[in-house]
Amino acid sequence: MSEGMVEQRVAGGAGPELDLTGAAWQSSSQGAGDVQVAFVEGWIAMRNRRTPEVPALVFTPAEWRGFVLGARDGEFDLT
């Protein structure tokens, strides 16, 4: 695996080797969160802006849609 190629983990096993070195990471325009996402080669990568050296989580489009819809519905709210 060359430098910049990162083997990510996805649900159910190992994910693809994605080159995230040139990824266009996007941060939320709302709140003070540290989550960033990037859309790379048909996958969605998510990382913590404060610790970019930690491997990103990688989602398929279907997994990402499920996550986003769950977040909108309050599935992950602490209250």
Rank of each mutant, 00 (worst) to 15 (best):
Q30M: 11
Q30R: 14
G31E: 01
G31Q: 03
A32D: 15
G33Q: 01
D34W: 05
D34C: 10
V35D: 01
V35A: 13
V35M: 08
Q36W: 04
Q36I: 01
Q36H: 02
V37K: 03
V37I: 12
V37C: 11
A38I: 02
A38F: 00
A38W: 00
F39Y: 10
V40G: 01
E41I: 01
W43P: 04
I44G: 07
A45S: 07
A45W: 02
A45P: 03
M46G: 04
M46I: 12
R47A: 01
R47H: 01
N48F: 10
N48S: 08
N48Y: 07
N48R: 09
R49W: 11
R49I: 04
R49F: 14
R50Y: 09
T51R: 14
P52F: 09
P52I: 00
P52M: 09
E53Q: 14
E53S: 10
E53M: 10
E53N: 13
V54A: 12
V54P: 03
P55K: 04
P55I: 04
A56G: 08
A56R: 00
A56W: 03
L57V: 14
L57N: 09
L57Y: 05
V58Q: 06
T60W: 05
P61E: 08
P61Y: 06
A62Q: 10
A62T: 08
A62F: 12
E63P: 12
E63N: 13
E63M: 09
W64F: 15
W64R: 08
R65E: 14
G66I: 03
G66N: 04
G66F: 13
F67N: 05
F67W: 09
V68E: 03
V68S: 03
L69H: 11
G70M: 06
